[in-house]
Design a protein around this nucleic acid. Sequence first.
DNA 1: TTTATATAGTTGTTTAAACAACTGTATGCA
DNA 2: TGCATACAGTTGTTTAAACAACTATATAAA
Lengths: 146, 146
Amino acid sequence: MQNNQFKKSELYSFITGKATTAIARRLQKNFKQQGVEITIEQWSVLYHLWKEDGLSQQALCDATFRDKPSITRLVDNLEKLKLVKRVPSKDDRRINLICLTPEALQLQETTMGIANQTLVEALEGVTNGQVEIAKEVLQIVYENLK
Amino acid sequence: MQNNQFKKSELYSFITGKATTAIARRLQKNFKQQGVEITIEQWSVLYHLWKEDGLSQQALCDATFRDKPSITRLVDNLEKLKLVKRVPSKDDRRINLICLTPEALQLQETTMGIANQTLVEALEGVTNGQVEIAKEVLQIVYENLK
DNA sequence: TTTATATAGTTGTTTAAACAACTGTATGCA
DNA sequence: TGCATACAGTTGTTTAAACAACTATATAAA
């Protein structure tokens, strides 16, 4: 019996696992309750820009595991909200650098706090060791399939 | 330091973890390659009906972690594909029992094989023990948030 | 230099998720 | 019986994902 052989009865929960979706949904709800009017998709883009401002759209695609049309539209919406600005790259005229506005910088602390709190709610009763293993598995799965 | 305290740098991968999405996407691709013309969302409904035919829409909501409108529309589409039929319950006139057609029964073996193969691809290099822990964590997260 | 090819980003279309508001039926209690 | 409430399912709207097809710029090779 091979390592990755599965009982059929176990298939489903893994393939359509809704736990990460549930966390995202809860985070969205917590944002709303705290008066933060952005979607989690928008937040996930801002998250990477807070780590490194001025990423290209392609870099955001790689970081968020989204395709280019998705990022184009997320950046469109973030621009409408005046949270980012598209800045044409001087080196390569194909590239837009996505830059945070002061408003977006202000959002960082609040939303990170909410995200942290959301994870505490989500992971109640789970040990750090278990979380580490779960994260490793998800990472390997993602690498295997990308 | 509490059990569920997190370093901020670790937040993101967990909240917007795309691994389960990646599995779903790969399964969709594998279906298409094998000429199976259903979406993974439709398949996830059929999956539960193969385990127990004649579930109500509400039971399908609970099983698939979807809300009622989502199930209404998935059942609409499955009915158009002639894979299920809504059968009014005799005991309770509010309830539709969702019943598989012979065509849907034929799909079971093929699609289960494809799903199994997809998981083998996804979980290469992951041990059974790790998978078990990952599943437990995801289950607890889901329970915590529902 | 010219041409082929790769890369960055946009637009269009279909499908589904999330949420709110709604209809119809059943249940429990005065 | 009659009424309030809960439950099952539907419809409408907004937002995003997935995929294909497209434009514009850069790079590499003839």
